[in-house]
Design a protein around this nucleic acid. Structure first.
Length: 572
RNA sequence: GGGCCCGUAGCUCAACGGUCAGAGCAGAGCGCUCAUAACGCUUAGGUUGGGGGUUCGAGUCCCUCCGGGCCUACCA
């Protein structure tokens, strides 16, 4: 039994996430958390909301609410939706928690003590109308290169030229439109990542099993231009972790906060403390997951994220940990995902294009989405959601292959033997062939899950379901029953046991259906299968079961067409 | 501009440099009648984006062109 720490990239607080966000981190993280738990490992699975930064402040202002209130409300919304998708977090925390405040300040203090913080005075645009310093991206103006009038301070969308906000002609605030901007001097803290470059590179070089997508992004940052650049870790904002040097004030940094990308990954750790605090556990309970000197040396730590998050998890956050000089756990494996596109384009939060988590749950059960998203996870390249593909996959895989299997076994048994596992008869050659096939396929399924190959695992699981239908077809208990009811009884007994086995194996992908199948079989035995022959003898003759309702209702063409129209454009 | 990834059957995807490039879906044919008009079997689909090269051997490695995508450090 191993100890496995799993974190999902923490979703930004601002708004409801779409299916692309879900499949990029939280959902696959949940798949493996469930799988490793089912295999008997000790798992701590953490996620949280990422609450700080300019967009949260602006969204709160737009909603006419104090930012603390806005974030608390949105946290509750995201919590409800993650529950709806059956994301089995041990704790769903908040980067604005007191625990994260203290820990972020602690890391900053340690980094300063180790000479890894530089104080830099720079000039930034301040908008009097907005009463705030503006990030580059929140300044608009005319591009000096192509004349495009809505160029942003970091880059012109029209000609793609990299810009500095001071390059813009007629700069204005992207928030208010105000042109009353002035350059003001302001002091900020920089994390001296450059001093840790060689250690970071050696660490990344040691990760030979990481996907190309992950290491190539990290390498780029280490070797780009003159090498790894130092990174500003403070901002002139109100909403965030106040800059402090551990427990001490930081002279000259009053009124400033840490940059969201400094405090957000630290929340992975603080979230564990939130988890312990919420349960009244001592610090030792969470430190044994995070401190190598306090029991975490044998923890395997896996992070899940979209590809856009990779630099922060391979460079900035490890630099923070290494630079602290304290034995915090570094990540062992990063599973990163490409993007899910929507029907020929991108999901768009701003345009309301695509399906968002709340909408998805309002039209179909979580298992439908979980199955499609995971079996089509964008592991090697961007993948695409279309309603036609979704309908076809869900109807075929869940309704026809799995759901109908459960249906035909239970209904046949009820009609011929009643709702009790029938006795009599013995396993025949058909049964032996099935057991042999499942022995191979279940071990292959485990192999894909251990290797964290989501799509391959899904394909193997589906093949395991198909094997049940093949068995029934070849054994044909409905024909055998006419002459030899005992032989048919043995076949049905095996079929009912298959339903239980499928529930156990499928639980990481489709937990609700798995629970319904176990409930129908009248058992709570969800032990992961050892030898398949034994796993198919768990339900003994005489054991009562119930015939479940339709496990998966099919998606009709009219529904599909209706949804395709509803989610094509503006969100209502 | 720079870096990286991807391009394989109508669709979604596989394939340590090594049998005849494989699965699922959709299509065609047959079978079954327990079942959500479900299931099973068989079958047809390919100049692996184009061109050049390395190699006994290339979907895989190199060069180049075309197409799509991501990142490029102050959105997060």
């Amino acid at each position: 039994m191993a100890r496995i720490l799993i974190t999902s990239a923490i979703p930004y607080i601002n708004g409801i996430k779409h299916l692309g966000n879900l499949v990029g981190s939280q959902l696959p993280a949940d798949l493996f958390a469930r799988y490793f738990r089912a295999r008997g490992h000790e798992v701590l699975f953490l996620c949280a909301t990422d609450e700080h930064g300019t967009p949260a402040e602006l969204a709160a202002a737009k909603a006419g609410k104090p930012v603390e209130v806005y974030c608390a409300e949105m946290w509750a919304v995201q919590k409800r939706l993650s529950d709806g998708f059956r994301l089995s977090f041990d704790h769903f925390g908040r980067s604005s928690s007191p625990q994260n405040h203290r820990l972020t300040q602690h890391f900053a203090g340690r980094l300063a003590a180790n000479g890894l913080i530089a104080e830099v005075t720079e000039r930034q645009f301040f908008s009097k109308a907005d009463n705030r310093f503006l990030p580059d991206r929140y300044i608009e103006g005319t591009c000096p290169n192509c004349g495009y009038e809505r160029a942003r301070g970091d880059q012109c969308e029209n000609c793609t030229k990299q810009l500095d906000p001071t390059d813009l002609i007629n700069p204005r605030s992207a928030i208010s439109g105000s042109t009353d901007l002035e350059l003001r001097e302001t002091k900020h803290l920089y994390l001296r990542q450059s001093a840790l470059r060689d250690r970071l590179e050696a660490w990344i070089d040691s990760k030979t099993d990481w996907p190309v997508l992950t290491t190539s992004i990290a390498k780029k940052w280490l070797n780009d231009g003159e090498g790894l650049k130092d990174r500003g870790i403070t901002r002139d904002l109100h909403w965030g972790v106040p800059v402090r040097r551990g427990d001490e004030p930081w002279p000259g940094m009053e009124g400033k906060v840490f940059y969201v990308w400094f405090d957000a990954p630290i929340e992975y750790i603080a979230c564990a403390k939130e988890w312990a605090d919420a349960r009244g556990l001592p610090d030792a309970a969470w430190e044994r997951w995070w401190r190598e000197d306090k029991g975490a040396a044998d923890v395997r730590y896996i992070q899940f994220m979209g590809k856009d998050n990779v630099p922060f998890h391979t460079i900035s956050f490890p630099a923070t940990i290494m630079g602290s000089g304290e034995p915090w756990k570094l990540v062992d494996y990063i599973k990163s995902f490409n993007y899910l596109n929507y029907d020929g384009g991108q999901f768009s939060t701003s345009q309301g294009r695509g399906v968002f988590m709340d909408q998805a749950l309002s039209i179909l059960p979580a298992d439908y989405w979980r199955w499609w998203l995971l079996s089509h996870a964008p592991e090697n390249s961007d993948s695409e959601f279309t309603w036609e593909n979704f309908q076809a996959s869900v109807n075929k895989d869940l309704a026809d292959v799995l759901g109908n299997f459960v249906s035909r076994v239970t209904k046949f048994c009820r009609a011929k033997f009643g709702e009790t596992v029938p006795e009599g008869g013995e396993a025949d050659a058909h049964a032996a062939a099935l057991v042999a096939e499942l022995e191979t396929r279940v071990r292959a399924y485990e192999g894909h899950m251990e290797a964290m190959e989501v799509r391959k695992a899904a394909a193997e699981l589906r093949a395991i379901w198909v094997a049940g239908n093949e068995y029934l077809q070849s054994a044909a208990p409905w024909a055998v029953h006419k002459e030899d009811p005992a032989r048919a009884a043995a076949m049905v007994r095996l079929g009912l046991n298959l339903v239980r086995l499928y529930a156990v194996l499928s639980e990481p992908f489709i937990p609700d259906a798995a629970a319904a199948m176990l409930a129908a079989m009248g058992t709570s035995d969800r032990a992961w299968p050892g030898p398949i022959g034994e796993a198919l003898a768990v339900l003994p003759p005489g054991h009562a079961f119930t015939t479940p309702d339709v496990l998966f209702k099919k998606i009709a063409d009219e529904e599909r067409e209706d949804w395709a129209r509803r989610f094509a454009g503006r969100r209502d």
